[in-house]
Simulated scan of single mutants.
Amino acid sequence: MSLNDFHEHTVLITGASSGIGASFALALAKRGANLILVARRLDRLQQLSAELHEAYGINATPIAQDLASPTAAADLVRSITAAGLTATSLINNAGFATFGSFTTEDPDRLTQELTVDVLTPVRLTSAFLPGFIAAGSGFLINVASMAAYTPTPRMAVYGAAKAFILSFTESLWAETRGTGVTVFALSPGATSSEFNAVVGTDDATAGAKMRSPDQVVATALSHLAKRNPGPSVIDGGTNRITAPLLAFIPRRSTATIMHRMTDPARRATSSASH
């Protein structure tokens, strides 16, 4: 797939109002793709759509949709059909995390988290992937996380959700080989976005050095342009080194290490010492 020409594509991007989703929208608009931009905040989507249309002459359609709704995927498909649009590629980017001891978390909020991070991506994939395969073209990018590669105490549901997305997508990669559709999971690490603001604490990224959304998207598009892209790609050199090494560390040890790294008391002590 040409990295510089997406004129034949209409790409559906969830979580498009900020962060990685907005960076995907900009990068693809520059390369000629038409876009369907989805998030809860219609005002942001409308502004982004107008800016991309003016700058690059592409059509960008904003659709406000709460992806935490149990019927989000079906509602979104209906909205796209009603607008007379056909998505030829899909980026399941929307997601959020909660932070804290599992026993103190709000069960309803956890249900919303699982819906946004797992259920809606699966249902959107089910809705659109058969059409991509029938056309023999297009791509599916599911955004996972470095959290998929290790236990994530204090973000137990988020880490498990991203591990699901990673495994799910890598399985789809194998199932769709030879169809003309490119499928892979993208795993960013700590990224400068609204992630921590939504979580409510910087402890969620344990003080890790941040990558920019544009760097994450550049990694994804470079992987997409490969002659034979693999089932997943990790953003950031340090992350790419770290993830395989985790397989050689006992799970007991990684769970213990991650529990210490995300301990708010540890970070408070570290900040006080400076």
Score class of each variant (00 low, 15 high):
Thr104Val: 13
Ser89Cys: 01
Ile249Trp: 03
Ser145Val: 10
Tyr149Thr: 02
Phe184Met: 01
Glu8Ala: 01
Ile91Tyr: 01
His9Cys: 03
Ala64Met: 09
Ser89Asp: 01
Thr219Cys: 04
Phe24His: 01
Thr179His: 00
Leu129Asn: 08
Glu170Thr: 03
Ala27Phe: 07
Ala82Tyr: 14
Leu67Cys: 08
Leu37His: 05
Arg41Tyr: 07
Ile165Glu: 01
Ala83Lys: 11
Ala64Glu: 10
Tyr56Arg: 05
Ile133Trp: 05
Ala74Asn: 15
Val233Lys: 02
Val157Gly: 10
Val118Ala: 08
Asp108Phe: 13
Ala220Gln: 01
Gly19Leu: 06
His7Leu: 11
Ile234Asn: 03
Leu3Asn: 10
Met1Arg: 03
Asp235Leu: 05
Ala268Cys: 10
Asn92Asp: 01
Ala97His: 06
Met258Asp: 12
Glu175Pro: 04
Asp214Leu: 07
Leu76Gly: 10
Val199Trp: 05
Leu166Lys: 07
Glu194Pro: 10
Leu76Thr: 07
Leu140Ser: 03
Ile91Gly: 00
Ala255Trp: 15
Gly230Leu: 03
Ala68Lys: 08
Ile58Asp: 00
Met155Tyr: 05
Gly131Ala: 11
Leu140Cys: 04
Thr269Pro: 15
Phe128Val: 02
Met1Cys: 04
Ala208Phe: 11
Ala74Thr: 13
Gln215Pro: 09
Ser270Arg: 13
Met258Ile: 14
Asn34Leu: 04
Leu172Pro: 02
Val198Gln: 08
Ala94Gly: 08
Ile141Val: 09
Phe195Arg: 02
Thr262Leu: 10
Glu105Met: 15
Arg31Lys: 09
Phe6Cys: 06
Gly138Leu: 07
Ala82Glu: 13
Pro130Met: 07
Ser126Val: 11
Thr81Ser: 15
Gln65Ser: 12
Glu113Thr: 08
Ile20His: 04
Ala218Pro: 07
Asp263Thr: 09
Ala72Gly: 10
Ser145Tyr: 03
Pro188Gln: 06
Gly15Ala: 08
Ala268Asp: 15
Leu37Gln: 04
Leu35Trp: 02
Thr256Lys: 15
Leu119Ile: 15
Phe195Met: 06
Ser192Asp: 15
Leu124Asp: 07
Phe184Tyr: 02
Trp173Ser: 02
Ala218Thr: 06
Arg227Ile: 06
Met210Asn: 13
Arg260Val: 13
Leu90Tyr: 01
Ala204Trp: 06
Gln215Asn: 14
